[in-house]
Each structure stands twice: as C-alpha cells, then as structure tokens.
Design a protein around this nucleic acid. Structure first.
Lengths: 339, 339
DNA sequence: GAGCGCCTGTGAAACGATTAAGTGCAAGGT
DNA sequence: ACCTTGCACTTAATCGTTTCACAGGCGCTC
C-alpha cells in the first residue's frame, strides 16, 4: 500500500537511484537494456514521481495559478470563466501541469493571493484576467519576476506577454452592420469603466460611429449586472432622441434590456435592435433570440495556456490576437423603423 | 531576489534551523525572547514556507482536488460550478489549502485524473461531484484510501462522508405547492438518469404525486441540455392529457420550455405552469420569470470544504443535509385553467 | 601498450522544511 | 556533593528526486 519510490525501483533493478532517474527522464547515461528494464519495473509497480520531491529538487512547482477577483455572486452568471478554464486546463494537463484556482473578493485580496502562492512556491506562473487600465498586479509580477500572461492585453506599459481578442475589430464590424441596416442613433451600454477592455471597446465604438459621419453616441457605464443593464436601457429609451439600436457589453444586460423594452412598449427588433457583447445559451433562450458577438472561449483558454508555458520556459512569446470574433445574427436586430 | 529560507533566518538570528522551525510553528522548545526575534526576522524578510519542502517532509500536499467530468461546452451554462467553487475555495484558503481544478471530458478520464494526481501526491483529498448511481470512483477512492467528500450523497454503499441538499423534501414541497394551486396533471422533465440525484428526485416526485392520490405522472429523461428540454416539452404538450404544470430539473430546460410553449400557443402561466429546478439569473431574465427551487450554492461549497477538511484529519464526519432548498415563486406558475 | 575518449554507471550533495534524539546548563532536592 | 528535572537549544536524519563529479571498463588510435 505504500507509495513506490525510485529507490524501490533501483533496488529491484539492482542499480542506483541516479541511474533510475536518468532512465525515467529519458536522459543519456544508461544503456538501452537497463532503461527498458527500469521502465518496465516502474510501470509494473505503478510508480509516479512525487511532485513535492521534484519541485524541491528542480525548483519548479509544476502548476500555474489563476486568481479570479470577483464578488462570488456575479461569478456564476458569466459563462466565460468555466469555458476559459476548461480550455486552459486541457492544454496544461497535457504537460502534467496543474491549475491552482483561487477566487477572491477584490483586487487587494488578489494581490495578497498572488504574493502568497508565489512565496510558497506553489506556482510557476500566473494567468491574469480582468485587467484594469492601471493595474497594480503588473508591477507586482514584474518586481517578483513571475512568469505570467495577461488576458485582455496588449499593453504598452509592460513586456509581459498577453493574449487578447481583437475587440476593436469586433465592435467596428458590429457598428458597420447596424449602420448598414440603416441605424443612425446607436447607443452603447458598457461594462466596468476601469477595465482595460471596456475602454478599448468604447473607444472603438466612438471611432466607428464618427467614422460613419455620425454624431458622438451615448455611452452608459455599468457593472455588467442585470440591474444596471436594465437601468441603463430605461435611461436610453427615455431620451428624446431615443436610439434605434443598443449594443451591450455582455449578454446578461442585453437580456435585461429585452424586458425593459417590453415594459416600455418598445418592440424588439421593430423599434429597437439589441445586440449582446457575449454569446451564450442565454442569447438563444430569450425571445427574441439575441444577436451577439461570439468567440471561441475555450480556444482562447488553450491559447492562453500555450503562451504562459512559453513564458515559463523563459522565451518572451509575441503577443498576437486570438482568432476574430464573429457576429451571430439572431432575431433581436433589424432595420430601424422608418423615420 | 532569492527566496528566503529558514536557514537564512537561522543565520540572522544566530540559532539553528531546528529552533527556527519550532518558533515558526508555535511549538515549545524556544524561549519567548528568541521566538519573538525569529518571528520578527521572518516577517521582515518576507519568509513563507515552501510547500514543496513541507509536503515532502510532512507528506501532505496542502491542496485538494476537484475533478469535473463534463463536456466543456455544457460547463459554461451551469452557474452551479463557479459558485460552488467560490464557496469551496473561500473556506479552503483560510487553512492555506489550495484547490487543484481539473476539467476532463468523461468518466474514464476522471478516473485517470484521480489516479494520477493522487499518485503524484498532488492532493490530500478530493471533492467528487456528479455522482452516478453505480459510480466507479467510489471503490477507487476507497481502495486508494483517498480522503474525499461526495457531493450529492448520502449513499448506502460507502462510508465516505457526503454532503447533500435534501432533494426529496424540495421536490415534495414543490409538488405540494402545485397541487395546492389546483394542478392535477403534473409532469417532470428530469436530467441524466444515471446521476444519483436524478433518481432521488424522480422517486420523490412519483411518491409525492401518488401521495396526493394522483395517477402515475409522466417523466421524461434528458441530458439537461436546452435542446432536449425543448424536445421533452414538445412531447409533453402534444399528449392528449396535456399536463397543466411541468417541473424541470434545471433552469436552462425550463427557459427552453417557455419558448416551446409560445411556439405551440400555450400560455404560461395561464395554460401551463413551469417550474425550474435550479435558480439563477436566467430565471429572472426570461418572461415570464421562472418560479424556481433555489439554494445557497456558495454555502454548499463552504460546507463541502469543511467536511472534506474533517475527513482529511482522519475523523469521519457525519453526513448531514445542507440547509433546505427554498421555493422562489415568480411569474411562471399559477392555478391551472378551469377544466 | 600507453593514452585517450566514450559509455555506463555509482555516490553523494543538494533542495527546504520537520522532528526525534541528544547536549549542555542551571535550578532544585536530598 | 551528587542526582534529578526541565528548559533551550543543536544535531542529524528524513522525505523523494535531480544532478554533478567521478570511476571503471572497453575499444580505438598511434
């Protein structure tokens, strides 16, 4: 019942533990015949290296950390994380690297969690998500020289590698589509203004609108919640120059908007087009089904893992954007009503 | 820039590493004055124990594993896991225990993942979810003597501790409510039949219906997906003795049912009452909002962590149910139409 | 056949913490 | 004066693996 060690293999094979180590790690220093025999014994007694011993010796923890800083009740809503984690983990497990997950309440706790798991040498690298425009985690990981990947970059203020989706292109394409349908008054309900990607998207939205020769469009900032999404929609639909289309920064707020429109007697999509900034089953379950910006989140996670692994090996991988976001058109968008 | 070790503390304090270890772990063997000084130095240079060294010496990994076996695309849908994990992790981190997350495709891969992370001594215990009625993971963890907690138990076939919500009571209460409203023909759209809790809920449903002197009710089994939920609803609404109420095993299928009802010209809640088996924001975002069985999933996760920690300490904690599920009544349920 | 290099393998020191066993010293009892 | 007891610490083994330095032995060359 006791765990087998290389010492046991060595004893059985009649060689030293050093030889066993070389054989098991595929390094030179043992003959083919001895190697074969050692591998056979290892397999027979079901030997697996102890990560603890290996970490201690090789000073690598064989795991990476993901610290999620969000109030727990908003976490369940986001289909993003579970899919992202699935992709991440799938890629990591092929290298026998474990994923250490931490869920904390706020930014300060996240900083603490990073400090701690690094000091304890629990992780070899970190995945950083939900980047703020002036994010104190970045100087921290640079100071401690923690290999990391920024999800949502790229940023000019660091050499840490990043992965990101091309939000600018996605938002621009979405605006182009709505304008092509005939919309002229388009509003945006954005997410947390402190997040880097919110700013990118808002800027892209403004630029696209102005690029079409349209006026400075209304933008409302929210915390991504259902409640604030509904509130923002009410505000926008109460304006004298009521928009004929609204783009939301996620799917939950877009779904909330459908209810507000109904409550205010605004028909979707006849009087108002609604576009969701994330795609999930929710978009298909509400009526009308929501037109949305969809991306392959699992692939995004896999890509993130690959970049992090490279960073951990010391190379500084180039930061390239993930494959483009697609516009999935469903029932919530249509040409605007005739003026 | 190098990581501080107890040897460094020992050198600075002018004592041996053994003394430092005693001082830092609050054990007797050092004077109050020396202890104070050692703690001060440790704090000053930012010392943290290396988990690797500690694990190797103490033969404890200081982390627990959660292996989720689900096709990745269905994962994002479930708000359950992220909330559960948030609760779990919150409780574990208080004891400086990390959560190792693994996402695999199927049961076989889960077995492999468990074997591996245990053989590598990566974890001290495991959380097992999505229990099947004849689950091969249970004999496995018993054979390997892995401390574990079963989420969804209790079971007669093992002494492994379990946490669970009282599904029987919840389903019974829900049926009682619908019957009190006047419903006589109630159907159930269940989840994966192989899962233990599906069977418990279906049995409770049958018993409750028969207990009210009603006929054997229709039950349709599904895979929890939106598509199969819609399909099941279509089948049920096409029966000659069309039910006046349907209980779904999750929220996604209930939401899908709203669309099917609309498509078939069945009014909710006037002609049909719909009840969701899980509560999430989805229930509030669809129209009519869904009446649902709600539970505090984060608390469930916290409780799970506490039971697992006890099991890891060698005590065999009693298996008690989590606090009761609440029936949250919204707009999708009403008295049945007059016969 | 001496010297050289290569191949296969050994021995032992690391890695950083925990911990059982041992040591020295002072106080206290007889 | 001698023994006991307890405290405050040290010493060294231990956990399992990696890896460096080194040792034989063998074949090859000059």
């Amino acid at each position: 019942m006791k765990r087998p060690t290389i010492a046991e293999i060595a004893a059985r094979a009649g060689v030293s533990t050093g030889a066993v180590s070389y054989a098991l790690n595929g390094r030179p220093g043992v003959s083919a015949e001895t190697r074969r025999q050692i591998l056979e014994i290892a397999d027979e007694i079901g030997w697996r290296p102890s990560v603890a011993a290996r970490s201690l010796s090789g000073s690598r923890a064989h795991s990476v950390g993901l610290v999620i800083a969000r109030p727990a009740d908003t976490l369940g809503v986001e289909p993003f994380f579970m899919r992202f984690i699935a992709g991440l983990e799938g890629e990591l497990s092929r290298q026998s690297i474990a994923l250490l997950l931490q869920v904390v309440d706020d930014h300060r706790a996240a900083i603490e969690a990073i400090r701690l798991c690094w000091a304890e040498r629990r992780v070899d690298g970190l995945v950083l998500t939900d980047l703020y425009s002036d994010d104190t985690r970045i100087p921290l990981i640079e100071e401690l020289r923690i290999p990391a990947v920024l999800v949502g970059g790229p940023r000019s203020d660091t050499r840490t590698p990043a992965v990101w989706t091309d939000d600018r292109a996605a938002v621009t394409a979405a605006v182009d589509y709505l304008v092509a349908l005939g919309h002229r008054r388009i509003a945006r309900v954005a997410g947390l203004p402190a997040l880097e990607h919110t700013q990118v998207r808002v800027a892209a939205f403004r630029d696209a609108m102005l690029g079409h020769g349209l006026a400075e469009p209304p933008v409302v900032e929210t915390d991504y919640s259902w409640e604030e999404g509904a509130e923002a929609t009410r505000t926008l639909l109460s304006r004298r120059d009521r928009p004929t289309a609204i783009m939301f920064d996620n799917d939950v707020m877009a779904a909330a908007a459908l209810n507000v429109a109904q409550e205010m007697g605004v028909a979707v999509p006849d009087d108002l087009s609604v576009m969701a900034g994330d795609d999930s089953q929710l978009c298909m379950l509400v009526r009308p089904a929501l037109t949305a910006l969809a991306r392959d989140i699992q692939a995004y996670g896999r890509h993130t893992a690959r970049v992090l692994l490279q960073a951990m090996e010391g190379s500084s991988p180039g930061s390239e954007p993930e494959s483009a976001t697609r516009l999935v058109v469903r029932g919530s968008t249509a040409p605007p009503p005739p003026a």
